[in-house]
């Protein structure tokens, strides 16, 4: 198709310009290289000067209270929101190194449908409620050219099984699903094209505790089995401890502390992190 040719040409152009973060990286390269990412809403700060590298298979949690800039950061990382300054470089399987915010829109949108997944807090934002469960999972496959109904359906069934949704629900509309099921369906829909990088915004928010536990366990298994890299935003430190390898603690748009998850939670250094840990974990 013309788009893919165009995208490939763009990708070639990217490779010719030196990769902004090319360094003597031993072994495999980071999947995501973020430097100086800053977002202002007018004169209001969203997030400021966020810099980190995410490696393949790593799960990074972004924690902090509401309004600390977590979701803004996630939006900028996943290319859905333009930052005021800073860079996000993604090592794409298909396009090579992509400077996410300088790449043409088709490349960004292609990544969001193929190599990336976005799991919204509210499943309604990530699902088509008037389309059956199978159709929701199949959409990503059809978006990348799947044109065999039988194959699409088989894949949809496979992913429903993966997220523990009964196969008999395949033709039901998501609005007949419980909140936990909708969230699992949203995850299945994201995984159908075999993404390498997932962005999750409070995936367990609004679910009751037992439903949360099931979802967390499912996510943990899928992430480790599929070797996914994940950036997960959560205000729930228990969720962060269970899923994330490392954490960034955000406050008022800035990263105040980062490190290995158990380091940050068991031996917090920054006053804000100490407050967060003492007020949430030992409530």
């Amino acid at each position: 198709m013309e788009t893919s040719l165009h995208a490939a040409a763009t990708a070639a152009a990217f490779r010719e310009t030196p990769a902004p973060f090319a360094g003597p990286a031993p072994g495999p390269a980071p999947l995501l290289n973020v430097s100086g990412l800053t977002k202002y809403y007018g004169d209001m700060l969203g997030c400021r000067d966020v810099t980190f590298a995410l490696w393949p298979g790593e799960v990074m949690g972004i924690v902090g209270e509401s309004g600390s800039g977590k979701s803004t950061l996630l939006g900028c990382l996943s290319g859905r929101m333009a930052p005021s300054s800073g860079q996000v470089a993604y090592e794409s399987e298909r396009f090579g190194v992509v400077d996410v915010h300088r790449a043409p829109e088709p490349v960004r949108r292609n990544l969001l449908r193929t190599e990336w997944g976005v799991v919204h807090q509210n499943p309604r934002d990530g699902l088509r409620l008037a389309v059956s469960a199978g159709g929701n999972i199949g959409e990503r496959l059809m978006a990348v050219g799947a044109r065999n109904y039988g194959t699409i359906r088989a894949e949809a069934l496979r992913w429903l099984r993966e997220v523990e949704i009964d196969a008999t629900r395949i033709d039901h509309l998501p609005r007949t699903f419980s909140g936990g099921m909708q969230q699992r369906l949203q995850i299945a829909a994201n995984l159908a094209t075999g993404p390498r990088l997932l962005f999750m915004d409070e995936p367990t928010g609004g679910l009751d505790v037992s439903v949360q536990a099931r979802l967390l366990d499912l996510l943990r298994n899928l992430v480790s089995r599929l070797g996914l890299s994940v950036v997960i935003v959560t205000h729930d430190l228990a969720v962060a401890r269970l899923l994330a390898h490392r954490l960034m603690v955000m406050r008022r748009g800035k990263v105040v502390e980062s490190g290995l998850t158990d380091q940050v939670l068991d031996d917090p250094q920054h006053p804000y992190t100490q407050l967060l840990v003492s007020s949430i974990l030992h409530a």
């Binding site: 198709m1 013309e2 788009t3 829109e105 088709p106 949108r109 088509r128 389309v131 059956s132 199978g134 159709g135 199949g138 959409e139 990503r140 059809m142 978006a143 990348v144 050219g145 044109r147 109904y149 699409i152 359906r153 395949i170 033709d171």
Partner: peptide, 17 residues
């Protein structure tokens, strides 16, 4: 951008139903 996957979602729903 020729993002026409959703058109087939409609046809998929037809066949499923």
């Amino acid at each position: 951008l020729e993002e026409y996957g959703v058109m087939h979602v409609r046809l998929y729903e037809d066949i499923a139903r």
